[in-house]
């Protein structure tokens, strides 16, 4: 299982609803593919019975031939079937169509086309951007465009839980920063995680807090490196990190009471 898929499912622990629907969707996709494969295998078996020559099989095309080779496995054991189906599904990118956000279930057909994972990788496919207000949950992003693999959007209180999950998974914290969305009267806090051991996986955890009451729990106990990043975010945006041991300005003068990166900051 690829690290991105592993991380995604680990992070889905935070969102039981999405996890349930995704698991359901994945199961449904498996069943669908399994049924299709069975049908194909049966059709192939029929074709074999009808035409015993090898030329008949080649005429059916490469995909059918690949599935035909797995014919025996498919028909023998259910467990083995599932594993093989997973592989086939990942190869064809089909599983992805239903592993995406639940909100886009209606658009499964177009999503299947949008999938862009390589044929050899086991990575989960890219989710579509949700329209309108983004719900809490895990998104798989297109690395070439976004530079990250997994994008988590969660409630402020869950930031520390996400950090804990990622810490256990061996992630390192690269940066913490804020974005001031003044039009929406909100402030976003972004945590960038990555791995330094082996395969590449970048995770961004975001949360939004109202501009009037910007409070986020600290993760400096989990990642000591977050200490400075949170201090910096605090002094630039005025976002208070609850439980932070030393929330005094780091780069600005120690008695600074202004927050320069706010969009309505007047020097």
């Amino acid at each position: 299982m690829s690290i991105i898929r592993e991380t995604k499912w680990a992070l889905l622990e935070l969102f039981p609803e999405q996890k349930a629907t995704e698991a359901e969707a994945e199961q449904a996709a498996r069943d669908k593919i399994l049924a299709e494969a069975r049908a194909a295998a049966e059709a192939e078996a029929q074709a074999d019975a009808e035409d015993a020559t090898e030329t008949g099989r080649t005429a059916e095309g490469d995909a059918a031939a690949a599935q035909g080779k797995k014919k025996k496995t498919l028909l023998d054991k259910v467990a083995e079937e599932m594993a093989a189906i997973d592989l086939v599904a990942a190869k064809e990118g089909r599983l992805g169509s239903s592993v995406s956000e639940t909100e886009q279930k209606a658009e499964t057909d177009t999503e299947a086309e949008a999938v862009a994972t390589g044929p050899e990788s086991d990575d989960p496919p890219v989710s579509l951007e949700p329209e309108g207000e983004r719900p809490h949950g895990v998104l798989v992003r297109d690395y070439a465009k976004a530079g990250i693999h997994i994008d988590v959007f969660c409630a402020p209180a869950m930031v520390a839980d996400a950090a804990r999950i990622l810490n256990e998974a061996g992630f390192t914290l690269e940066a913490v920063t804020g974005v001031d969305w003044i039009k929406e009267e909100q402030m976003e806090v972004v945590y960038d995680y990555s791995r330094t051991d082996g395969p590449l996986c970048r995770v961004a955890v975001r949360t939004r807090v109202p501009r009037s009451e910007p409070e986020v729990p600290t993760i400096s106990e989990i990642y000591p490196g977050a200490n400075w990043h949170e201090r910096e975010t605090h002094e630039f945006f005025g976002i208070r990190f609850q439980g932070h041991p030393n929330l005094v300005p780091l780069l600005l003068p120690e008695d600074a009471d202004f927050h320069p990166l706010l969009k309505d900051f007047q020097p």
Partner: peptide, 16 residues
């Protein structure tokens, strides 16, 4: 938004 990293002389330089 996007995030880009390069290897600077001192380590990972990232731009969000």
């Amino acid at each position: 938004d996007c995030y880009t990293v390069v290897e600077a002389a001192r380590g990972t330089f990232g731009c969000r």
